Simulated scan of single mutants.
Amino acid sequence: MTKAEKTRQFIIEKSAPIFNTKGISGTVMTDIMEATKLAKGSLYVHFENKEDLSYAAVDHNMQILKDISNKIINKHKTAKGKIIGFLNLFSDPLNHPVFGGCPMLNFGMEADDTSPIIADKVSSMIKEVLQELKEIVDTGIAAGEFKADWDSRKFAVMVFALMEGGNLICRTTKSNAQMKIIVQIIKDEIHRNSL
């Protein structure tokens, strides 16, 4: 990595949590300058404007989310273990594995009407998560862990919607109590479809 590439990466890493916490519209270049200890001119050498930097920050936050999720899922041998691992990872929204909370939820809600580029990034990530959950269930069906008639697509959508909705409820109310109910609902569904 060249010095310029290292500086660019440093700026992204320092600004990503700020964007994820304050939002894109709430983040100002002064925030980035304070976090990086770089002058505004130095920032603009690496990024055309705040919007350009926000795209990189969104990608960075979502990559962190993907890496953490994949690490947990891949630790487990069974499909059931992978799903439970996924649920456990995201069962404490007040201490989300990505600083500032779920970037899909944070950026998706802000960008749906304001930034088609970021909305597309979030949409792609949602589709990836849904596909991965579906494939885990399909693998479990093929391995004889789950009932053959379990609709993996519906389950994936249900898990994603419940977990993201629970994330919103818990972070807004400052309590994880509702997520415990949501996780139990999903675990009951897994149990009903297990062999």
Rank of each mutant, 00 (worst) to 15 (best):
5 E>D: 14
5 E>H: 09
6 K>C: 13
6 K>S: 15
12 I>T: 04
12 I>E: 15
12 I>G: 10
13 E>M: 09
15 S>C: 13
15 S>L: 14
15 S>Y: 12
17 P>Q: 03
17 P>G: 11
19 F>R: 07
19 F>H: 05
20 N>P: 12
21 T>G: 11
23 G>P: 09
27 T>M: 03
29 M>G: 07
33 M>Y: 10
34 E>W: 09
34 E>K: 12
36 T>S: 13
37 K>C: 11
38 L>N: 02
41 G>I: 07
43 L>E: 06
44 Y>K: 00
44 Y>C: 10
46 H>P: 13
47 F>W: 13
47 F>V: 06
49 N>R: 11
52 D>W: 04
52 D>V: 06
53 L>Q: 08
53 L>Y: 05
56 A>G: 11
56 A>P: 00
57 A>C: 15
58 V>D: 03
63 Q>K: 14
63 Q>L: 10
64 I>K: 10
65 L>G: 12
66 K>Q: 13
68 I>H: 14
68 I>L: 14
69 S>W: 09
70 N>M: 11
71 K>R: 12
71 K>I: 04
71 K>M: 05
72 I>N: 02
73 I>W: 10
73 I>K: 04
74 N>H: 14
77 K>T: 14
80 K>T: 03
82 K>M: 14
82 K>L: 10
84 I>Q: 01
85 G>K: 06
87 L>G: 05
88 N>M: 03
89 L>G: 00
90 F>R: 02
91 S>R: 08
93 P>Y: 01
94 L>A: 09
95 N>S: 14
101 G>I: 00
101 G>M: 01
108 G>N: 01
108 G>I: 06
109 M>Y: 02
110 E>F: 11
111 A>Q: 05
111 A>D: 07
113 D>E: 15
113 D>C: 05
114 T>K: 14
115 S>R: 10
115 S>T: 04
116 P>F: 05
117 I>P: 07
118 I>M: 00
121 K>Q: 15
126 I>C: 09
126 I>R: 08
128 E>D: 14
136 I>W: 02
137 V>C: 01
140 G>Q: 07
142 A>N: 08
143 A>S: 15
144 G>S: 02
144 G>P: 02
144 G>I: 01
144 G>K: 00
144 G>E: 05
146 F>P: 02
147 K>M: 04
148 A>I: 05
148 A>T: 07
148 A>N: 09
149 D>S: 10
152 S>Y: 06
152 S>I: 04
153 R>M: 07
155 F>L: 09
156 A>I: 01
158 M>S: 13
160 F>R: 00
164 E>S: 12
165 G>M: 04
165 G>S: 07
167 N>C: 13
168 L>H: 01
170 C>Y: 01
174 K>H: 12
177 A>C: 00
177 A>R: 06
177 A>I: 05
178 Q>S: 11
180 K>M: 13
180 K>S: 02
181 I>Q: 07
183 V>C: 08
183 V>E: 02
184 Q>M: 03
185 I>K: 00
186 I>M: 05
189 E>H: 03
189 E>W: 01
191 H>A: 12
193 N>K: 03
194 S>G: 10
195 L>M: 09
195 L>D: 08
